[in-house]
Write a protein that binds this DNA or RNA. Structure first.
Lengths: 147, 147
DNA sequence: AATGTTTGATTGATATGCCAAACTTTTCAT
DNA sequence: ATGAAAAGTTTGGCATATCAATCAAACATT
């Protein structure tokens, strides 16, 4: 792709789609099932919006619906959910612990970018945070930032 | 706002809008003027799309058109452009110099997130990068007190 | 049984943002 | 001045993403 700025649209997952998938995972973890209505309530959108949005995710094979309309993630959906959750967590940790960003703002920024961060950046951010922990145990070393 | 994930939609600037504004700034810096066609060519979209998109930015007061249809940024537009450019640069520097992310991937990640990073995060990321520089030059490391 | 209520899902309307194509206006060269 | 090229707008189509309104079915209530 020549136009870097268009990569935003080329993303394999929109922000909305990412949160629909996360909702299904969280609902199933919490109460064992997820229907269209549950997703809608979880995201605080109408059941109509959820219905349409989930339909397109079903057609992409990220969500599977059983005969009683209960939803679950396909293996691909699970993989995407896992990646998104991990990236959000990494970025949130970096923002709060390394930069000293407030909890609320870090939550927002991490949520906005969770689905946009590349695998390479996620990998290297993880490595950076691990190194930082090691340096903490060795108290003489490298103050990184003033909070 | 109760729903953190909806902040994405509430952003004052879409990715597309940010790049239309940046295009005008860059074109005027490079060649002194920017017309609809120039913006379209710069972004590699059709003049039709550019025309429509720029019209909405005009109506929002971010772009001003003179009597010969030459475009420029309003003071608000300039402020937004400046903020976006700064955030992209900060994040790009962090990705490449601190994390060691490849130039190409850092460019993409920074571009995707430039318009989404909060002022607080930008401020603290800047501070972090400054400290990192200081620590490099002077290994005894006096972290300056934060604001 | 009849009526009402809650729950679940779909359909229709609106808004962004892209493209292609048709059309108008402006500019410029001869 | 005229005709072609360049610039700009409009229209129609597609995809995403939202909500309001509606339909359908299950569940109460009397």
């Amino acid at each position: 792709m020549l136009d870097v700025w268009k990569q935003f649209e080329e993303n394999n997952l929109t922000h909305s789609a990412a949160h629909h998938i996360l909702a299904i995972q969280e609902l199933r973890d919490q109460r064992g099932y997820a229907r269209v209505t549950d997703v809608a309530r979880h995201l605080n959108i109408t059941t109509g919006s959820a219905s349409t949005n989930l339909k397109s995710l079903k057609s992409k094979g990220l969500i599977i619906e059983d005969e009683n309309r209960f939803l679950q993630l396909s293996p691909e959906g699970q993989a995407l959910a896992k990646a998104v959750v991990q990236r959000k967590q990494l970025f949130f940790t970096f923002l709060t612990e390394t930069l000293g960003v407030s909890h609320d703002q870090a939550e927002i920024d991490a949520c906005k970018t969770e689905h946009l961060i590349s695998a390479e950046t996620a990998r290297k951010l993880e490595k950076f945070l691990n190194n930082k922990d090691n340096n903490h145990k060795d108290s003489s070393a490298h103050p990184k930032v003033a909070a």
